[in-house]
Design a protein around this nucleic acid. Structure first.
Length: 602
RNA sequence: GCUUCUAUGGCGCAGUCGGUAGCGCGCGUCCUUGGUAAGGACGAGGUCAUCGGUUCAAAUCCGAUUAGAAGCUCCA
């Protein structure tokens, strides 16, 4: 139990595990950090310092950013402050008093000014000589902050806007007990071992080459195999659900993007080929599939009887991300989306939307990602209208429609302003990587605008020409990004059906090679991805290699196996359900096939 | 794009005050190899990311570029 100090000056005992206490704890740690920085670097100007998931940070304006040695010094000073054992007190000041108090703190003055304009009360917390403008709550005393560590110093824009000055942010974490801190740090180390950007390279799933460029990974045979498996599987699933496949160009004329609005809204994000001033035609690589796939719809007149039309396409997309944004397989300049558009009547929207979600949920369950995903209802930002097309009433109408459908679906979602596509609201399925960074994996969107822009119509039963609704959806998201998530989810030990090598065949001595080749042939004929270790090494060494490669199964073959025409099967460690023991080649093939089929069918 | 940091054979690293490169793994050859996490010998492989500068001399110092990492911002 920790003693908390509330803004009314009252105290109460709350366990650290309660989020209000945990936040107050980390927030107090942030104040201790700021106090230490002011002591060691008196010229530093204070920004803000909240608690965050798993820790805290504080922003400072300093001449030269903190070095690792600086962090050590600051940490030492923090320990001293904790030992000094100050109690915290909370008090209020008038605007004028506050301005006097923080005359040397320009960022605090800005906040005071702003709070004053809103007519909000100015609360302050004090520990020893250190006073901060702060809404609280905090711990009642600094001595409870026993275990902490400063993790990094990086740049961060004041108030989160790139128009403002970049301050120096120190990140740290803190716990009541040092054992908890150690455990947390160990978890961070553990997470790093699953990092797809490292593991994916080690397992030879992908690589990058300086001369090729940023955000342009080379998928190696094993990585490409996984993507191929996923793509075949997803395309089959889509076909089962009534999708028709299209194949459209990877680039088109600027005129096309002018219709869709990309030229006006996202030209900076596109790779443009040619110069509008001097060239007769200017092209751009496609950042999304929609305008191309719409041309398939426009191929002839459509009746309400034709709808819904569901188009899918495995599409390479190109987006000119800024140089600092690329990351492993997560953020790329070229990527492959299991893209698609459902064109339907207003009456059909609900069912089609729900069916699209149903497909995504099926896919996530099959991949084992279902429990790691959460849902974000991404709406527009009415205060930032230039980012979007269409009028506010339409936006409200579509968002309400989407909320209605979402509520019926029973999905547990949260709403986010300013995250919509420029043409409509989205349901984003979000996932976190091993470092806790969030990214969109899948998305389903309702679009009420592009049909009109492209002149897409259907003749309704009353003979009227009407604009259809369009659902933009992805069954899978982008293959590269999902692959990254899968690598981290399974730490490279893919389930059998996705493993690029399913069986590694290990001859005990070279004289068993011939039989091993036969086994490899049999497995391959049965559709099993088998690979043989042909090196002249001891069997223990070969097993170790196969373990490092995280291959689901090994088939060990020596004299006894050759004589009896069988294989000794061994599974990957930590897989108690897997096959093991000796069996005939035919039985092994059949068992593997069964296991593969069981895993995919839910 | 911004802040900080980084770049040495396929991978992981060492290289002290500037004096033209080493180790482990991997790779190749040969020997070895019967049983569940590293058998041995020999060998190949690097103009130290690129370009430019300082210097008698640069992997080492300086600048630019390219690429990578963390964070911020952005993400159709």
């Amino acid at each position: 139990m920790l003693k908390m100090l509330l803004h009314d000056g009252e105290t109460k005992l709350v366990p650290f595990e309660e989020s209000e206490c945990c936040d107050a704890f980390r927030h107090t740690a942030a104040h201790i950090l700021a106090q230490a920085v002011k002591r060691v670097f008196p010229a530093a100007k204070l920004g803000i310092g909240p608690s965050i998931e798993n820790g805290f940070y504080y922003d400072f304006d300093v001449e030269t950013p903190f070095t690792a040695e600086d962090l050590d010094k600051i940490e030492k000073e923090m320990k001293k402050i904790v030992k000094e054992g100050h109690s915290l007190e909370c008090f209020a000041l008038s605007v004028d008093e506050a301005k006097t108090q923080f005359a040397d703190e320009p960022y605090k003055l800005e906040l005071i000014e702003e709070l004053a304009q809103k007519g909000e009360a100015l609360a302050f917390y004090k520990q020893g000589e250190f006073i901060d403008l702060c809404a609280g709550p905090h711990l009642a005393r600094v001595s409870d902050v026993k275990a902490f560590k400063l993790l990094s110093a990086t740049g961060a824009y004041w108030r989160g806007s790139e128009k403002n000055k970049m301050l120096t942010r120190i990140y740290g974490t803190a716990f009541p007990k040092s054992a908890q801190l150690e455990e947390h740090l160990a978890r961070l180390e553990e997470a790093k071992l699953r990092d797809h950007n490292k593991l994916g390279r080690e397992l030879e799933l992908f690589t990058t080459a300086d001369v090729v460029g940023q955000g342009l990974p080379i998928l190696l045979p094993k990585g490409a195999k996984i993507v191929q498996l996923l793509q075949r599987w997803v395309e089959d699933l889509e076909e089962e659900r009534g999708y028709q496949i299209t194949k459209t160009p990877s680039f088109g004329k600027s005129d096309l993007y002018k219709i869709s609005g990309h030229w006006q809204h996202y030209k900076d994000g596109m790779f443009v080929m040619g110069d509008e001033e001097s060239d007769k035609e200017v092209f751009a690589l496609r950042p999304m599939t929609c305008p191309f796939q719409f041309q398939a719809y426009l191929n002839r007149g459509r009746s309400y009887r034709d709808l819904p039309i569901r188009y899918n396409e495995t599409a390479s997309l190109f987006r000119n991300e800024s140089s600092g944004e690329m990351h492993g397989l997560i953020r790329l300049r070229q990527f492959t989306l299991a893209d698609g558009h459902i064109i339907c009547t207003p009456e059909q929207v609900e069912k089609e939307f729900l069916d699209a979600i149903d497909l995504v949920v099926y896919v996530m369950k099959a991949l084992g990602l279902y429990d790691d995903i959460y849902y974000r209802f991404s709406k527009w930002d009415e205060n930032n209208r230039e980012k979007y097309i269409g009028d506010p009433a339409q936006w409200e109408k579509t968002q309400n429609l989407m909320r209605e459908i979402l509520d019926k679906s029973g999905l547990n979602y949260y709403e986010a302003d300013g995250e919509a596509a420029f043409y409509g609201p989205k349901l984003d399925m979000q996932a976190k990587n091993v470092y806790g960074k969030e990214d969109t994996l899948f998305t389903v969107q309702i679009d009420f605008q592009l049909a009109e822009k492209f002149g897409m119509v259907y003749t309704d039963s009353d003979g009227e020409k009407k604009h259809p609704f369009i659902i933009h959806r992805s069954a899978f998201g982008c293959y590269e990004r999902t692959l990254a998530l899968l690598i981290e989810k399974y730490a490279g030990a893919f389930p059998l059906w996705l493993a690029p090598v399913q069986v590694r065949i290990l001859p005990i001595a070279d004289r068993h090679n011939e039989f091993c080749e036969r086994v490899q042939g049999e497995l391959r004929k049965a559709g099993i991805r088998a690979e043989m270790d042909t090196r002249s090494e001891k069997i223990g060494f070969k097993i170790r290699e196969a373990q490092l490669m995280k291959v689901p199964y090994m088939a060990v073959i020596g004299d006894a196996e050759v004589e009896a025409g069988i294989v000794a099967v061994r599974n990957r460690r930590g897989d108690p359900d897997g096959l093991s023991g000796t069996m005939s080649i035919a039985d092994f093939c059949a068992a593997l096939r069964r296991e593969v089929d069981d895993k995919v069918i839910l």
